[in-house]
């Protein structure tokens, strides 16, 4: 059963006199527990598709169903709540909160979910240990390397055990060692936690690790390959 379903998605930007068609009739289904990469050249619509799948942006036409819930017509307030409960995000630029420690960053979404402190602490330390950065729990993001920061971002995304993790170019700012290490961790989390991972990337190392690769070009899916 598909946990993510996108039907006839189009997205047109009208910021300039000439409309830009970022997505043209995307139909897509992703099963629970998949480790999927959305690939394609710059400007092909990867990030736009990921934003729409994550409820951060609205499609011009079409609809997105996540875990059986149509999020396309959902009101902003409900959509924020839906994202909080169901989706983990990993951003290209990490986007950690600089004034919080590593552990506080990991706990942040659980805090928004009003989980008890004991549960938050235990889960955050568990994830930081799995990520190999438990010793950095009390440090601020500025004291960590790029790879370590992205691990914190992944830990934050996983902390509340969301159904899906959407990662937009998660390795774009990382060196090869950090990328490899991060991918191993995400693959392990995918396997152990059963979280569904969807990446947008044009990093070959991520593509190699993915078990499914969806290729976009000019806003359309030109291939969908399962391995």
């Amino acid at each position: 059963m598909s946990i993510i379903k996108a039907t006839d998605i189009t997205k047109t930007y009208n910021a300039t006199a000439v409309p830009v068609h970022a997505l043209n009739g995307i139909n897509l289904e992703i099963e629970k527990g998949e480790f999927t990469a959305i690939v394609g050249p710059s400007g092909c619509g990867k990030t736009t598709l990921l934003n729409i799948l994550g409820g951060l942006d609205h499609p011009t036409t079409g609809e997105v169903t996540l875990a059986g819930t149509n999020i396309t017509t959902m009101q902003d307030g409900k959509l924020i709540d839906f994202r909080l409960k169901n989706i983990g995000f990993v951003f290209q630029a990490y986007n950690l909160i600089p004034v919080l420690t590593t552990q506080e960053n990991v706990e942040f979404i659980m805090l928004l979910q009003k989980r008890p402190k004991q549960e938050r602490d235990a889960r955050a330390l568990e994830l930081l240990t799995q990520m190999g950065i438990a010793d950095k729990a009390g440090q601020r993001p500025s004291q960590l390397s790029g790879g370590q920061q992205q691990r914190v971002a992944v830990a934050r995304a996983l902390a509340s055990k969301p159904q899906f993790i959407l990662a937009d170019e998660p390795t774009a700012n990382l060196d090869s060692h950090s990328t490899s290490s991060l991918l191993d961790i995400m693959a392990k989390m995918n396997k152990e936690e059963g979280a569904t991972f969807v990446f947008s990337t044009h990093d070959q190392r991520v593509i190699d690790k993915a078990r499914r690769m969806i290729t976009l070009e000019d806003g359309q899916i030109i291939s969908d390959e399962k391995r």
Binding site: I80, D81, R83, I97, I109, L112
Partner: peptide
């Protein structure tokens, strides 16, 4: 702005 965008993206409500 980027951080505020992230906060709202991950589920921080507007009122918060």
């Amino acid at each position: 702005m980027k951080e505020l965008g992230m906060l709202m993206a991950v589920g921080m409500t507007k009122i918060r």
